[in-house]
Each structure stands twice: as structure tokens, then as C-alpha cells.
Design a binder for these strands. Structure first.
Lengths: 243, 243
DNA sequence: TGTTCATTGTGACGTATTTCACAACATCGT
DNA sequence: ACGATGTTGTGAAATACGTCACAATGAACA
């Protein structure tokens, strides 16, 4: 397993991640500490499913349901029950035989695993039409995320206020991130500026980037990237269309 | 392989597809017709990578490059060269030993595989803020896609013109789709209306749905769905953040 | 307290996907 | 015409991921 060569397990790079499986240095002394937050080598596919579990559990909570079996959850989500059980088993034992899972408890647990039991401040780079739409989007707050600052390199946009935040010049990005200890960034710049923006985010200490620009970003191993790419999504679906 | 039970191969359902591997009825008479468009059982992961290849090839074309090796392409994209060669080999042989691939030819070929050598008309459902942003998005046209009609169930919005198209009432959706032979739909409705909208799209003959609503849609096997879900993307990245 | 029932958590197995590694071959310079 | 070079396409091996199937066990109720 050549450490460098395939640092970024393929699939990830494209469909999104480019993350570090943050599990190096495990030769300390093989302590069996199999705690909940044992994150040694949990497949990224599993991690990507967890938010869906959380979302579905929330919806059950809204409906007042207190307990759920892997089977029921599976049906709601459209996966197999075995998969849900296996996924959860990576982190510990949260169910009760014969009873299923306590909805509230499981929801809290998975949120804690994903570190959603806090608010993450984000910087948004690129305040064109897309940036404006993102800045005005109401869905982040409801989910542990908050846009803390807006940036654009166009001096004409700087100063404009969007959804309560002034647009700041790009040159302030790194400093702002450091000062406010921000680890999450959103890139909504034109394609050609995306990589340089990513570099700035990295300089500012970013650890997670949500990338709306249609480019594969090169980032260090400790930075996770997920692509939001509607065009690619469409382009891959047409393959299956039978006319 | 229980046909019904796991119609929707898990991963797909969540990370996007819910498609038909459109390859039933292959007991005709095992003709070896291994043509390019041989689509028997090509993994969806591969299909999802093809748009990235196309995009990267286009960028090479813009730079005037005429030939590219799998190695170079791999570096640009951030995958391994072997993977690119394997992916392409599902469809045929497009390279020349010692030389690599002809950029223009490969680009055209992959586009043809993805059926991007035509324009796909789409319907957009849900004309709230998000719907407006999508309707005004300039990136589709440049990529074989065109929004042909807008729909919303809110009578107050009906009639409003967005980017040259009037918003029509939902009740016209099915008829419009059939009349104009539209097979691609975008859902940008609130979460609670997403499933009913999907049902209408299916009734209208949809075969591909780009879903911006945070719900897992239930659709028949012949319909492919891809989710655009920035919140889930963020929620899965925080897992990796080390503070 | 024992029996029934439902449902978990997980070894063992199976399938899907990626990577290795190399024979085959096209091109070029001589 | 030939050897050197670079790069493809692909069997075979390796790894990653998903599913089966069942022993273990908690709850309910007799």
C-alpha cells in the first residue's frame, strides 16, 4: 500500500472526498480502546450514509416515533437492514435485541459521531449569482452550519451586504479564517479561480471544502473535499436513458 | 439476487442512482456484439466518472493539446492511470500503444457513450428561491442540457417569467412532458412535496431526476435519481475534522 | 421463572471495484 | 528493417464493500 501514490482512494477524489483516512500513527501500542469514536479505517461510504440516517431519524422524531428497527429504517431509506446494522456496528452497539433502536438516542449518537453536536462556522468564497444563492440558503443553519463570512475578489462586490454579512475582499480570507478559527469553506467561484481559492482556504487552515466549481481540486491529505456538481450528475444519468 | 428486495442497489439509492442497470432480457441469443455501446453491466461508479473525463478532455482541447496518456489524464483528475484505462476498456479500445489517446476523439467517444451528442430538454419543478437560481444557471446549456419548462404548484408564482420561460401550474406537468417528450426532470420543491412531484414526473415519463430536495425518492427501476445534497456533504465531512 | 417473540450484532461468505504487472504493439530514429 | 521507447489493454491478484444467516439476548407475558 504505497502511502503516497494512492493517498486519495480514487473514488473519493472524484465523487467527493480527497480526505485523509485520519488513522496514521496507530503503532502507538495496540490498545483495544474500541470506543464509540473509534475511527480507525471506517469506510468513507459508511460516513457518507450517516447524514441520511440522521435526517431520517429526525423525521421519525417529528412524527413522534420513539423506537425503530433496522428493517423499518432500511425501508424508509431504501437500503438493506443488514447494511444499516453493519454501518452502525462500526461505531458500537446502539440497539436492543427484540426492540430495535431508540430513535432519539440513535439520532444523538450518530450526530455526535459526525461531530454535529456543535455549530460549524464557514467561509463562502465567490459571491456571484451562485454565491448569493448559497448565502441566502436557509438550510444550513438548521443543520449545525453557519456562514460566518463572505468573500469575493471583485472590488465592486466588496462591501455589499448579503443576508446580514458584508462581502469582504479575498485578501482578508486567510486572516479571517485564522482569527475566527474557521475550518470549513465553500467555493462558489468561477472554475478558473477555484484552485487558487482552495489554496487560500488551505492557507487559512481549512479542513473541509464544499466545492461548487467544476474542477477537481488539489488539496493536502488532511483536507476533505466534496463536489456539488449538478452537470456531472445529469451527464451520468443520460447514459441510462432509453429512448 | 432477489429482484424486488434490492432493486435499488443501496449505495446508488443514497449517493444518487436508483437506476436500472438497463440490461435485462439478455437471453435473446448471446451475440458477442461487443460494440462500443455495449452497456451490459457496466458499474455505475464507472459511469459516474465519465463526465469528469469529458470535462478534463475539454479543458485539454481548450489548451490545444491533441494527445494524452492515461498517466497524464490520471494526474489531472486525481485517479490512477490503471483506473482510467480499465474504465475506458469497458467500452472498447480508444488508445494507441506508445502514443496515448487522441484528445478530440476520446472526448467525442465518451460523450457519445453518455449520450451527450444531443440536447436534453428538462422540466424544472419548484420555483422558490432555489428553483429561480437553477432556472437562471448558465451552466446547463453549455452541456447538452436545456430547461424547457418551469412548474410550481403555487398559483401566485404561475405566470411569472423566469429566464425567458413562464412558470406553469403543476397540473400541466404530465401533459407537457408527454407532449414535448421530456425525459429529464429537476426537483427543487420543498422536502414535503418532493415525492409527489417525483410521482408526477414518473407519470410524465421521466427517466432521470436531479433531486435537490433532501429526501430519498421512491421511483421505479427504470428511473435514475441523483441527489444534490450540500447539507449531507457538509455533515459527512465534519467527521474527518480534527480540531 | 420459563417460553415465545422480535431484532440486534457479526462471523463467514460473496460480489464489486481497484490495482498490479506485463505482453502486445505502434511509432520513431537510425 | 530493426531495436529502443512509451503506453495501451487486460488477466490475475488484492482490496473494499455488501449480504446472509444465525447465535445471542432483551422484553413480554403466562
Amino acid at each position: 500500500m504505497p502511502a503516497i501514490a494512492r493517498t486519495t482512494p480514487i473514488e473519493r477524489q472524484i465523487e467527493s472526498v480527497s480526505s485523509a483516512t485520519p488513522s496514521y500513527g496507530v503503532d502507538m501500542d495496540l490498545d483495544d480502546e474500541e470506543d464509540e469514536l473509534n475511527n480507525l479505517n471506517i469506510p468513507d461510504v459508511v460516513i457518507r450514509r450517516l447524514p441520511i440516517y440522521v435526517r431520517t431519524l429526525h423525521s421519525l422524531i417529528e412524527h413522534g416515533q420513539v423506537s425503530v428497527s433496522s428493517e423499518e429504517l432500511a425501508t424508509l431509506i431504501g437500503v438493506t437492514a443488514a447494511q444499516i446494522r453493519r454501518d452502525l456496528s462500526y461505531f458500537g452497539k446502539f440497539g436492543k435485541q427484540g426492540r430495535g433502536y431508540d430513535v432519539g438516542y440513535l439520532s444523538n449518537t450518530v450526530e455526535r459521531i459526525l461531530k454535529l453536536d456543535r455549530t460549524w462556522n464557514m467561509v463562502l468564497c465567490g459571491m456571484g449569482k451562485l454565491g448569493h444563492a448559497i448565502a441566502n440558503y436557509r438550510g444550513f443553519m438548521r443543520s449545525s452550519f453557519e456562514i460566518a463570512a463572505l468573500f469575493d475578489s471583485d472590488e465592486n462586490l466588496v462591501g455589499e451586504e448579503v443576508n446580514g454579512h458584508p462581502i469582504r475582499p479575498m485578501r482578508d480570507l486567510v486572516e479571517t479564517m485564522r482569527r475566527e478559527h474557521i475550518q470549513v469553506g465553500i467555493i462558489a467561484t468561477p472554475r478558473k479561480n477555484a484552485q487558487e481559492t482552495a489554496d487560500l482556504l488551505v492557507a487559512g487552515g481549512v479542513q473541509a471544502i464544499l466545492n461548487y466549481a467544476p474542477v477537481i481540486l488539489k488539496v493536502p491529505d488532511h483536507v476533505t473535499v466534496r463536489e456539488i456538481d449538478p452537470v456531472s450528475a445529469l451527464q451520468s444519468m443520460t447514459y441510462y436513458i432509453e429512448d
